[in-house]
């Protein structure tokens, strides 16, 4: 968690706790989110956060407007994403073999539910007057190279700096880490709030 104050780190952990409850309720089974990484990274390293290879990943992204804006992504390796869709749809894991509308919808709705529950406590903790004023866009499904997915999410922060503040979490489902998780890329205004609240992660 380099470059970020204890106070900010605590806020992200509170968000992860709330999101864990939402994920467990959504999947109707034990589930949790663990904050893995909260730090400012050079651009090239940030692009590689989801992996350096060319195996596709899947997921859903939302742009969040309001007092704590940015992009939040739910991502997973392809096979894990299909298992997540199975769990959401009440199927046995491994049932889904390809991405159809139903599977995509399951992943998008998971991103919506878990992502919003993750950010709301964070916004409240940062003093955003009305956390309900966070306005997420409809989720967009994506299945692409890891690097290109991250580039798209990072484009909002990169105009001002060559380093990027990232917060990443990983889901555990039934006690097993999944390599599925959330990535939050705050926008410039949100970076300002984080810096003002004690985050030292604002890019120089």
């Amino acid at each position: 968690m380099s470059g970020v104050s204890h106070e900010i780190e605590t806020l992200f952990r509170v968000g992860a706790t709330q999101a864990s409850r939402a994920l467990a309720a959504w999947l109707d089974r034990p589930a949790s989110l663990v904050v893995e990484r909260l730090e400012s990274l050079p651009l090239a390293d940030a692009v590689a956060v989801l992996g350096r290879g060319d195996e596709p990943i899947c997921g859903a992204g939302m742009q969040v407007a309001g007092g704590l804006g940015g992009v939040i992504l739910l991502t997973a390796p392809d096979a894990v994403g299909l298992i997540l869709a199975d769990l959401v749809l009440g199927r046995s894991p491994g049932t889904s073999r390809a991405w159809h509308d139903l599977e995509r919808s399951a992943v998008m709705e998971t991103a919506n539910i878990v992502g919003c529950r993750y950010l709301n406590p964070l916004a409240t903790g940062l003093g955003v007057e009305d956390a309900g004023a966070l306005i997420p866009s409809p989720p967009c499904f994506v299945r692409d190279f890891p690097a290109t997915v991250m580039q798209a999410a990072l484009s909002m922060q990169t105009a001002e700096s060559d380093s990027v503040l990232l917060a990443t979490t990983e889901f555990s489902i039934d006690g097993v880490p999944t390599r599925c998780g959330l990535v939050f890329v705050p926008d410039a205004a949100a970076l300002g709030r984080l810096a003002a609240a004690g985050g030292r992660g604002r890019p120089a």
């Binding site: 651009l43 090239a44 692009v47 690097a147 997915v149 580039q151 990169t158």
Partner: peptide, 21 residues
């Protein structure tokens, strides 16, 4: 070739990944 960088070569391959870039 990393994001935001330039590669120059006289042989072999130059590679990168692009989305909106």
């Amino acid at each position: 070739v990393a994001i935001g960088r330039i590669g120059v070569a006289t042989q072999g391959m130059l590679r990168t990944f692009v989305g909106s870039c």
